[in-house]
Amino acid sequence: MFAVQTTPCMIFLDFEKPIAELYEELKNLQEIQSKGKIDVSASIREMEEKIEEERKKLYSNLTGWQKVQVSRHSERPYSLFYVQQMCSDFVELHGDRNIKDDKAIVGGFASLEGRTVMFIGHQKGINTKMRQYRNFGMANPEGYRKALRLMKMAEKFNKPIVTLIDTPGAFPGIEGEERGQAEAIAKNIREMFRLKVPVICVIIGEGASGGAIGIGIGDKVFMLENTWYTVISPESCSSILWRSWDFKEKAAEQLQLTAEHMHRNGLIDGIIPEPVGGAHNDPHAMAGILKDVLIRELDALSAQTPQERINARIEKFCNMGVVVE
């Protein structure tokens, strides 16, 4: 896939201040250039290279908390963007056939290089209004039940499933509790182990606890480079264990929630690299990278029998944990 050239993201996180300052200088140079009196094109090129270098340097050494910040970047691509970029003929399907359509989880069939795939993913909004509409990517039970309905349909028609995970958590609300948030997540986890078709899960942003694992049981579980996945957000962990909101950086380190840690601890199958500066800095390139991985992995998984996949899936998760006897 040929990446579409995009302009770099101009919304900077606090640790990106050095880059923001360089862009400021670049802007000044460009203004001088536009006036046409002095030729500063060499300086502009130099500055652009300097920015790229600075970005590379910064992003090669992010802390856990900084990765959490990148995973939540407001310009980061979300599920629908990826599906639309990677596939053709995406048809979104709605509703849990029970109570309603949850906007925080989307799903539907799409064609990935000629192969029909069921995509299911959390969806965050791209502006204030849409963020509310999508409930900030926090699903209610009907979202998980919609996901399960679509997974069962994919299984019925022998289509592989790809889930894209990006949630700050399952929504903690009265109605969600009354409609069985816990039951919906529990059932999804159990049923995903029994699916006869290939299942690939990718953490594309935030992987918060039950809300994430509720669509997170797969033959392969990947994390994008600048994402996090664990049992609690660093902020909540700080507030519970340190009894203060001020230890989120420390909590993020202690929780070992980055892709690198998760892979080293044997809890995910692989890390998918992001473009320099994070997925939000070049979303099209990111979609291209993800697409290649999905095609490669789906090819490999399709070579196995359903029973082989199910056995391996169960065995993989059953080996997770550290006990002393």
Partner: peptide, 24 residues
């Protein structure tokens, strides 16, 4: 979940449910 075991504790949800799937 036990926060001090971070994602290891999260994966116990998966492990127990996997075994229950077999039992089911």
């Amino acid at each position: 979940a036990r926060m001090m075991e971070s994602a290891f504790s999260l994966m116990q949800m998966a492990k127990t449910s996997a075994k229950l799937a077999l039992m089911h």
